[in-house]
């Protein structure tokens, strides 16, 4: 069987690619669409470094087949900033030093964006459980959680 042609939307832009049935969406994003911001830490859905949104739903792109992207809307880290304006989460991650090596950061940002879309006012516990699938080995999560809570407050307009 030949490769499958897939038409999809990535970060608001139309995209198409050819892929083998067994190729993961993560491999497609990284190798075919040159969107290397999504990372592979495990390939088994245990680390969250490849987090993206698929039709608005947070998923691990390593657990999605490339062919399943047909007709879907994909959001990746590369689409988080609005042009040259960083998303408040990106700014708060920088201000709070919520990253050290930065490898888990894209996945955490995508996951956090999905959290705040679903729940603009999470408790610390809710944020921690939502992000339990995003492993970070550098920070001990403290500054990440602080950045998330601060960004959420700002996005709710509480810093005005």
């Amino acid at each position: 069987m030949s490769k499958i042609h897939v038409t999809t939307t990535v970060n608001g832009e139309p995209a198409e690619f050819l892929c083998e049935p067994q190729e993961s969406l993560l491999d497609v994003l990284r190798d075919k669409l040159q969107l290397t911001g999504s990372k592979e830490g495990c390939g088994s859905g245990d680390c969250g470094a490849c987090s993206i949104t698929l039709d608005g739903r947070l998923v691990c792109s390593c657990l999605v087949l490339g062919v399943e992207a047909e007709g879907k809307t994909i959001g990746t880290i590369e689409g988080l900033a609005n042009g040259d304006e960083l998303h408040p989460l990106q700014r708060k991650f920088l201000e709070h030093a919520a990253l050290q090596c930065g490898f888990c950061t894209p996945g955490l940002l995508v996951a956090t964006k999905a959290l705040l879309d679903a729940n603009p006012n999470p408790t610390e516990t809710e944020a921690r459980f939502w992000l339990a699938g995003n492993l970070c080995r550098c920070t001990g999560y403290d500054k990440i959680i602080r950045a998330v809570m601060d960004a959420a407050a700002e996005m709710r307009g509480e810093h005005a």
Binding site: G45, L115, G133
Partner: peptide, 9 residues
């Protein structure tokens, strides 16, 4: 079952 990400699927 699994993480928030896994719950998405």
């Amino acid at each position: 079952i699994g993480s928030t990400q896994v719950q998405g699927r």
